[in-house]
């Protein structure tokens, strides 16, 4: 179930943000996407989800063309999305948020039960209104909601932004378990240490293009690529 993107061009109205992205994500592997603020990382994920239309280029999931599909068809092919800033359905309960996540697969009980073993704290709060959860719990819910879809490809946009270290490692552990189940994970992440700990490979984005892709094995925190592309 490889996700293969070639020559993707997209933007907002007259503004072009993605200028020919080539990208690949493999099942069971975590591919990180790094780049400075505003290079188009979030736009790339939105474009994969069909939320920002691609004007050119192809998105293939195991050969099936996803580009040009209406946004609501994309998750039916197994793509799940954890947006930057969580975007929970705030006035809805935890259980209802999870039910929205499971819509396309018919909300089967086994999937929900499995997701709740990954995030037991959510199981204790099923009837709590999402916007009253703590920041960390909200982030767990955003990920859990996506997992209820039983995704083949999981897109995560800075899921540990602004969280305390214990919460960060809890979420990282959950992400790692997914790869064991054959999910292809695409992770937008700004922190070098997190990338080195989690990722199998890392793609560096500059001005709407993937400039370079590196295997994480053998990459050190002081490698010049990080300074070049991320500025740390």
């Amino acid at each position: 179930m490889a996700l293969e993107v070639a020559g993707l061009i997209a933007g907002y109205g007259p503004v072009t943000v993605l200028r020919g992205v080539d990208f690949r994500a493999e099942p069971g592997r975590i591919t990180c996407l790094m780049g400075r603020n505003g290079v188009g990382k979030s736009t790339f994920l939105k474009c994969l989800m069909g939320l920002v239309p691609a004007t050119e280029g192809t998105i293939r999931l195991d050969g099936t063309a996803l580009e040009g599909l209406p946004a609501h068809e994309v998750p039916r092919h197994g793509l799940a999305y954890v947006p930057q800033g969580r975007r929970l359905f705030g006035p809805l309960t935890v259980a209802e948020n999870l039910a929205i996540g499971g819509l396309v697969q018919g909300n089967d009980r086994a999937t929900l039960a499995h997701v709740l073993t990954l995030f037991p704290r959510l199981g204790e709060r099923l009837s709590q209104v999402a916007q009253t959860l703590s920041g960390g719990e909200q982030q767990m819910l955003s990920i859990a909601r996506a997992l209820c879809l039983k995704p083949k490809v999981l897109l995560l946009d800075e899921p540990t932004e602004g969280l305390q270290p214990s919460m960060v490692s809890l979420i990282q552990d959950a992400i790692r378990t997914l790869t064991g189940q054959g999910v292809a994970v695409v992770l937008v992440e700004q922190r070098v240490d997190a990338v080195l700990r989690l990722a199998d490979s890392v793609a560096f984005m500059v001005a709407g293009r993937v400039e370079e892709t590196r295997d994480v094995k053998g990459l050190a925190a002081d490698d010049p690529v990080f300074r070049n592309y991320v500025g740390v």
């Binding site: 609501h72 994309v74 947006p83 359905f89 039910a99």
Partner: peptide, 22 residues
């Protein structure tokens, strides 16, 4: 389920679409 879908769409139609809601 239909009511839930309507309430989710009311809160955030973009995210609703990302979860398969037409």
């Amino acid at each position: 389920k239909a009511g839930l879908i309507m309430r989710a769409t009311q809160v955030d139609r973009t995210t609703a679409r990302a979860f398969g809601i037409n």
